[in-house]
Simulated scan of single mutants.
Amino acid sequence: MASELKLQISVDVLELSELSTAECQAMELARQAANDAYAPYSNFLVGAALLLEDGSLFKGSNQENAAYPSGLCAERTALFALSANHPNKKISLLAVTARRRHEHEYLAAMPCGACRQVMAEYEYKQQEQIPVLLQGPEGKFYRFKTVSDLLPFQFTKENL
């Protein structure tokens, strides 16, 4: 007899005025990073910002390529660059936003599956939860307490 496993994920849906100062700074840097994205094919500009435990910020933007699989999402650009330059710094928050090139309004930004897996790896690496702040629809923001809420069944080294 099959059994059922129910998952419950909690996400805070917030207005801009409800974000902390640090969350606002991270989201603003993510927006700046989106403006710097190299997306000549999709015109979909994505920015990510990492708030580090020491209060500093680090950014990444999506980088496209005519050979589509060679591009890289903003979340992975930020995480890989941080790890390459500051391998021991811990992440306190990851913020992501997106917009279309010729529009000023920011759109709901949901990380792809590959980015969720990489985000989970960094959470596993630092052995601490990484809260995730995503631009939501209609000017709202989604705050997840942990990457695990975005990817509940993760592939980890225990699966190897």
Rank of each mutant, 00 (worst) to 15 (best):
A2W: 11
A2G: 13
V11E: 12
V13Y: 03
E15F: 05
L16H: 04
E18G: 08
Q25I: 03
M27I: 07
E28K: 06
E28S: 07
L29F: 06
A30P: 02
R31E: 06
Q32A: 09
A34C: 11
A34L: 07
F44Q: 02
L45P: 00
A49I: 05
L50Q: 06
L51Q: 08
L51N: 01
L52S: 07
E53V: 01
G55K: 04
S56A: 07
L57M: 11
G60C: 12
N62G: 09
Q63R: 15
N65C: 15
A67H: 13
L72S: 14
T77R: 09
T77K: 13
A78Q: 02
A81P: 00
L82P: 06
A84M: 10
N85M: 07
P87E: 00
S92M: 04
L94Y: 05
L94W: 05
A95L: 06
R100H: 13
R101A: 11
E105L: 10
E105S: 12
L107F: 09
G113I: 05
G113E: 10
C115H: 09
R116W: 06
R116N: 13
M119K: 09
E123M: 13
K125N: 07
L133T: 01
L133E: 03
G139F: 04
K140E: 08
T146K: 14
D149T: 12
F155I: 10
T156M: 12
T156N: 14
K157D: 12
